[in-house]
Simulated assay, not measured.
Amino acid sequence: HYVPQLSKAIIRHNQATGEKAINLKGYMVGNYLTDDYHDYLGLFQFWWSTGLISDDTYKQLNLLCDYESFVHPSSSCDKFLESNRLLKRMLVVGHASEKYDPCTEKHSVVYFNQPEVQKALHVIPAVAPAKWETCSGVVNNNWLDSPRTVLDIYHELIHSGLRIWMFKQRFADILSFMGGWTQEYAGLTFVTVRGAGHEVPLHRPKPALTPIKSFLSGRSMPCLERVSLSDS
């Protein structure tokens, strides 16, 4: 949601000054969070109906976590998820292809904790944490202004004329619930990349390149040609 928030700030600044300090034409965002209620809607039922969780787990999720914020769940919901680490992983990992390196996160931790890397990134030692983490619990637990929805921002940005593309992978979690198609609306395009995990370009780099190239060229996604049985 920080991508549409930043885009809104740029658009409003340009409108207020009458100048395009940043000539923003649009943006593409992957594995997006847009609205706590709608992002979660049907998730637990999908897990249960496909046999990923038991009847008891399904009941507990609906009791403790239903309609909760994905970023800041209640303490009872978070405690239940922590006690069921498989659920925690299903929320964030997704499906990984055979070529995916499961140690990618560990490589990142080693790399970004190197002094020369932090110096190049202008990290201020006085305010930097003792150790860089991919998902910092300190940051997450102290992040108090996370919005529950950015749907209003999307309405504003679409009306401003931005081209917005939103893509996801195909797997059964909150960050990838849609699958297998592309759908265009006025100013808004949805794309799904099959067989990817949470980070689409990392897991499926070649298929992920197609929507990126289409977006940058200003074209729609390529579609398969339909063949009529009467033509055969």
Rank of each mutant, 00 (worst) to 15 (best):
R148D: 09
L162Q: 04
T104L: 12
E98W: 05
P129E: 04
S97H: 12
Q114T: 00
P147G: 02
V123D: 05
V110G: 03
R148I: 00
N140T: 04
N142V: 00
V139W: 13
E105Q: 08
G137Q: 06
E133Y: 08
K119H: 09
Q169S: 14
V110A: 15
Y154R: 02
I158Q: 10
H122N: 14
V150H: 09
E116H: 15
K131N: 11
A126S: 13
C103D: 14
P147N: 09
L157E: 06
S136T: 01
E156H: 08
A126M: 08
P102H: 12
I124Q: 11
S108T: 00
P129N: 12
V110Y: 13
R148H: 14
K168P: 00
L121Q: 15
P115K: 11
L175C: 05
E156I: 00
R163H: 08
Q114G: 10
P147A: 03
P102D: 06
E116I: 01
V123H: 09
D101R: 08
D145V: 14
V110R: 15
L162E: 03
F167A: 03
V110H: 13
E98F: 04
D173H: 10
F167S: 01
S97F: 08
P125Y: 04
Y100S: 01
A172L: 13
H155Q: 12
A126C: 07
K106H: 15
D173S: 14
P125E: 04
A130H: 10
V138W: 12
N113A: 08
Y154W: 09
S176E: 01
P125F: 08
L157P: 02
K106R: 13
S108Y: 15
Q169R: 13
S176R: 03
N141L: 11
F171T: 01
F171H: 09
D152P: 06
E105T: 01
A120N: 11
H155C: 02
I164W: 09
K119I: 00
A96Y: 13
W132I: 06
N142R: 05
A126Q: 12
S108P: 00
P102C: 02
P125M: 06
H155P: 00
R163C: 03
W165H: 09
N142L: 07
P129R: 15
L151T: 02
L121F: 11
W132G: 03
P129I: 02
T134L: 15
D173C: 14
V123C: 14
L151K: 07
W165T: 01
N140F: 06
S108V: 03
R148L: 07
Q169E: 11
D145Q: 14
T134G: 15
D173Q: 11
V127H: 09
P125Q: 05
R163A: 07
Q114D: 09
E133F: 04
G137S: 04
I164V: 02
H107S: 09
W143S: 10
C135T: 00
V139I: 07
T104K: 10
N142M: 06
H155W: 14
R163Q: 06
P147D: 02
N141G: 06
L157M: 07
N142Q: 07
A128E: 05
N140H: 08
Y154Q: 02
H122A: 05
K131C: 04
I158Y: 10
W143H: 05
D101H: 11
E156G: 04
V139Q: 06
T134C: 14
I174L: 10
E105Y: 12
C135N: 10
C135R: 11
